Simulated assay, not measured.
Amino acid sequence: MKNQSSLFVIFCLCLTAGLLGVYAVFVGYFNGHQEYEMRLTVLQKQVDKEKFDNSLLTYQLKDFQQTVAQVLPDNKKLQAKYELKNLASSVRSPASDEVVDLSPVLFEKGKKFFNSQSYDKAIQQFSTLTEKYPLSSHTVEAKFFIAESYYLKKDFKSCLQEIDAMVSQYPDNDLTGFILLRMGQISEANNQVEEASEVYKTVAKNFKNEKLKEQARKLAQSVEYK
């Protein structure tokens, strides 16, 4: 009887040990499976992020290309000009607007209108220049005269818009510094003395042209006494 009881106990212990072993294997399997799923999820997120980043870069590249395309002339036109310049002999059409650079003519006409105080006509000439010949050496001066014409017409809103465009496109150009002085004077006319003083001080600090810096300092000092 005792032997049977001992055998039964041993059997139960063996069975229990076996069940525990199976349980351990079972738990280990599912824990490993969960860890694998977690790793797979992390990798999937990384892949999705890389896809998103690539999509974003593609979009930014297209946006950049569109921006450049708006500034530069059409590539075909550039290629045509290059080929014409490098041919030993070529036939040029006298009426071809794409070949002949008329920006100097427009610039001189604009200056004549400006000097005769025909500011509307001056703005029209200079605007035509900047639209047709954005890469002309006269473009910055033309934009300056447009802003100055608006100022002398007392169309301060349009003047400020032109000044803002010059600051964005030509922040280091001396003409941008000179036209910024007009922004300060517009602020003074609107009784915005502190804003005017800040503009003058900014010009005096950030531009290298000594005449411009001296003029900005004098205007800043005159504001302080008001």
Rank of each mutant, 00 (worst) to 15 (best):
L84R: 06
L57C: 01
Y133M: 08
P134N: 05
T16V: 06
V199N: 07
Q4E: 15
A24S: 15
V68T: 07
L78C: 04
T58A: 11
K45H: 09
K2M: 12
F114Y: 15
Y29T: 04
P94Y: 00
L19Y: 10
F126D: 03
R92M: 05
V22K: 06
Q185T: 07
K143F: 12
G177P: 03
V91T: 14
E37T: 07
K112F: 09
F52Q: 14
Q221A: 02
G177N: 05
L43Q: 13
K208E: 15
L19D: 00
E210Y: 01
K62C: 02
F178G: 01
D120H: 09
L43I: 12
L212D: 03
K2F: 14
Q65M: 04
S136C: 05
F107D: 01
F144W: 05
N209E: 14
F30T: 10
Q124G: 01
K143G: 08
A17V: 04
L102V: 05
S187F: 11
Y151K: 07
A147H: 02
F64L: 09
K205Y: 10
E108R: 13
Q79I: 12
A122Q: 04
L20Q: 13
K211N: 12
F178V: 01
F8N: 14
F178E: 09
L78T: 11
Y119Q: 08
K154A: 10
G28P: 03
D101W: 06
E141H: 10
L19T: 08
L181Y: 07
V22I: 08
F30L: 02
A88V: 10
A196S: 09
K208T: 12
F8D: 13
L152W: 05
L78D: 06
I186S: 06
Q125S: 15
Q66A: 12
E108T: 10
F11N: 00
F107P: 01
L152H: 11
Q161E: 15
G110M: 04
I123Q: 05
Y29N: 08
N54M: 13
F156D: 13
Q70H: 06
L87V: 11
V42L: 09
L219E: 03
K208H: 14
A69K: 10
K208Y: 11
P171D: 01
K62H: 12
